[in-house]
Simulated scan of single mutants.
Amino acid sequence: MPMPPEPPFQHRPYDGSTRPFTVGLKPIGEETWLEPDQFLDAHLAEKERLFAQDLRAVFRAEEDTCAAQREVLDLVTDNLMRFHPLTHRVEAGSATVIGTGRRIAFGQEPALLTASKLVQEDLVIMREGPDGYRLVAASVCFPSSWRLSEKIGRSMSGIHEGVPDFNGARMGQVVGRLFENLATDQLVCRFNWSIYPDDNLHHPIPEGIAFAVTEESLARLFLRVERQTLRRLPKSGDIVFTIRIHHDPLAKLAEQEDRKRIASDLRSQLMDLTADQLDYKGMIRARDEIAETLERM
């Protein structure tokens, strides 16, 4: 049975409900932890391509993470079995992604890699260390302007080096306390967003908008929304961090019934970004043109 299409602009972190470069965590239920949608087959195919092309570029794991990886796989398969029977079937020793021809066997590769081949989310394991939580294992096929090879093994402060308002500011302290106090029965979610010049999922290299933005060229841009979740693994005590990419083509904006509100909300957040924040998002040159075009809409 095909899945009903998810509407564009499903998640709108730019609507004023959260502020960019803040923690902005909200509790979620187990049933919404993972988000399979009509792009499941395409996203998994892109993961397969990246795994085959250069596995170490998108998957890394320290040797003592095997048990934590299995915990993640157990959580993922249990969630798929309970809440996503239209897209996944879990059996003894394997899982099937329904309608795609994919049957993933367990035990033939690192468990985190197996889990990543079942879902659209990227999966990251964070472990407590002397300098705070650090990245010890990850399958990250769809990074937003960063490379896994440069982040593996690093602490939260190291991972976020160069991110405006994180290190030396309240945000880094809040994230540190969150990681320390997160209970095993808590699931929390936050969002990031930016505007990208294309809909490529794999974006390890920062790429700003280099062309002049008009109403015609605005339709070539994509809102890239990252939905991130956090939960503590019940046995190891490590934290699993998921990242799910949603692409909203701005070409579809004119078709939305509430397009005026979407354009207004997006413009307001763009205009509120500082120069450092705009530079980090790759929009320092194009912000005013985008804002003016959205205002005309």
Rank of each mutant, 00 (worst) to 15 (best):
K235Y: 08
I159W: 00
R261A: 10
S149H: 07
Q186E: 14
A219V: 10
V188N: 01
T184L: 03
G29H: 04
K260C: 08
I245W: 00
H43S: 05
A95D: 05
R261D: 08
A105H: 03
R232C: 04
R82M: 14
H160M: 03
M156F: 04
E109P: 13
E295Q: 15
S194M: 06
Q269H: 02
E46M: 10
K281W: 01
S194V: 05
F142W: 09
M156T: 13
T214L: 08
D54P: 07
V174R: 04
L113I: 05
D74I: 10
L86G: 15
L294P: 12
N79S: 15
M81K: 15
L55H: 07
R49Q: 12
I290L: 09
S155K: 02
P143I: 07
P164V: 08
P8A: 08
I125R: 07
P5H: 10
F222G: 01
V225K: 00
D258G: 02
E91M: 14
F211S: 08
L75M: 14
T22D: 02
A210R: 12
F21V: 10
M126F: 09
N181Y: 02
R170M: 10
D131F: 07
P130Q: 06
Q38N: 07
Q269V: 14
C189D: 00
V58Q: 04
V240L: 10
S149M: 11
L253E: 01
D41K: 12
I159H: 03
Q269F: 01
W146P: 09
R89H: 15
I28G: 00
L270Q: 06
L233M: 12
R127W: 02
A219I: 04
I195W: 04
G93D: 08
Q53M: 09
D238P: 06
N200D: 13
R244I: 01
A115I: 12
G24E: 01
Q256N: 02
